[in-house]
C-alpha cells in the first residue's frame, strides 16, 4: 500500500451503463491489494481547488493496473467529470489501495455471502472475481438488487461466472423494471432470507449499497439469526 499520493494514468475506459463507466488506471509501479479495498482519487483545478473521493476497486489487473467503476451522481462534483470528461491518457492522483475491514481474500474462507444494492456491487464484484480467479472451493452467493436490466453492472461477466462456476449462485432482484420472466418490486426481507446462506452455515456477509439499503438488509439478517460480527457493511456516499 502507498500512503502518499501518486500519479496514475487512465489506460482504458468503457461505459458500464448509460451513467456509469469503468476506468482502468495504470500505476508507475506494481500495485497489489485485497478485494473490497478502495482508492482515493484527488482532482485539482487550475486555481488549486481540490476534491477527493473514494472509489472501490472493481478489478485488479496485475501488475500495474486496477479498475474502478464510477456512477454519475445527480449534482455530483467529481463523478460527472470522471464519467463524462476524463479521457484515456489523462493523469489522476491516487492514494491507496486502502482499507482493511471491508475486504475478503480466499484465505478468509466462507461461505461467502455478497449483497449489493445498485453501484454497491463494485467492491463485491472484486471479491467475486478474486473468488473465481483463485478457483476457490468456498461456496459463494451474490444477491444483486438493481433498478432495471439496463442499470446492471458487469452483466455479461456475471452471467458467465454464474454459468461456469458451480460454487457461485447469483440472484438478481429488479426493483423497478424486470426482464421477461422476472417480476419487479422492492427487495423484501423474504427475498433476502431466501437468497442467503442460512445462519447455521455461518456465512461471512458483505453488504454494500446506499445507507437505507445497507441498514434494511443488515437488520433483516440479524433478525434471521446471523451473528452481527459476521456482517460487514459499506455505505456508499456521494
Amino acid at each position: 500500500m502507498r500512503r502518499t499520493w501518486q500519479t496514475a494514468q487512465v489506460s482504458a475506459a468503457r461505459p458500464e451503463t448509460a451513467d456509469a463507466r469503468t476506468i482502468r488506471l495504470r500505476f508507475p509501479e506494481p500495485v497489489t491489494g485485497t478485494a473490497g479495498q478502495h482508492v482515493d482519487l484527488r482532482l485539482t483545478a487550475e486555481d488549486g481547488y481540490q476534491a477527493v473521493r473514494s472509489y472501490s476497486v472493481a478489478a485488479w489487473v496485475p501488475p500495474y493496473e486496477l479498475e474502478v467503476t464510477v456512477e454519475e451522481l445527480d449534482d455530483g462534483e467529481v463523478s460527472p467529470f470522471l464519467v463524462g470528461v476524463l479521457a484515456v491518457g489523462d493523469d489522476l492522483e491516487v492514494r491507496g489501495p486502502v482499507g482493511g475491514w471491508f475486504t475478503w481474500t480466499p484465505d478468509n474462507g466462507g461461505p461467502l455471502q455478497l449483497i449489493a444494492g445498485g453501484s454497491g456491487v463494485v467492491p463485491l464484484m472484486a471479491m467475486l472475481r478474486s473468488h473465481s480467479e483463485s478457483r476457490s472451493a468456498v461456496p459463494a452467493r451474490l444477491l444483486y438488487s438493481v433498478r432495471s436490466p439496463a442499470s446492471m453492472f458487469y452483466g455479461g461477466e456475471l452471467a458467465v461466472i454464474g454459468q461456469e462456476n458451480s460454487q457461485v449462485r447469483l440472484d438478481i432482484a429488479y426493483s423497478r423494471e424486470a426482464p421477461e420472466g422476472a417480476t419487479a418490486g422492492r427487495l423484501t426481507h423474504e427475498a433476502v432470507t431466501a437468497s442467503c446462506f442460512p445462519p447455521e452455515d455461518a456465512p461471512a456477509i458483505y453488504i454494500c449499497g446506499s445507507t437505507g439499503f445497507v441498514e434494511a438488509v443488515s437488520s433483516w439478517l440479524v433478525e434471521d439469526g446471523h451473528e452481527p460480527a459476521r456482517i460487514r457493511t459499506e455505505r456508499y456516499g456521494g
Partner: peptide, 13 residues
C-alpha cells in the same frame, strides 16, 4: 502543489 487535473474545474464556475 499537485498538478491540475486536465479539464477539472470543480463546481466553482
Amino acid at each position: 502543489m499537485a498538478t491540475p487535473t486536465s479539464g477539472f474545474t470543480g463546481r466553482r464556475q
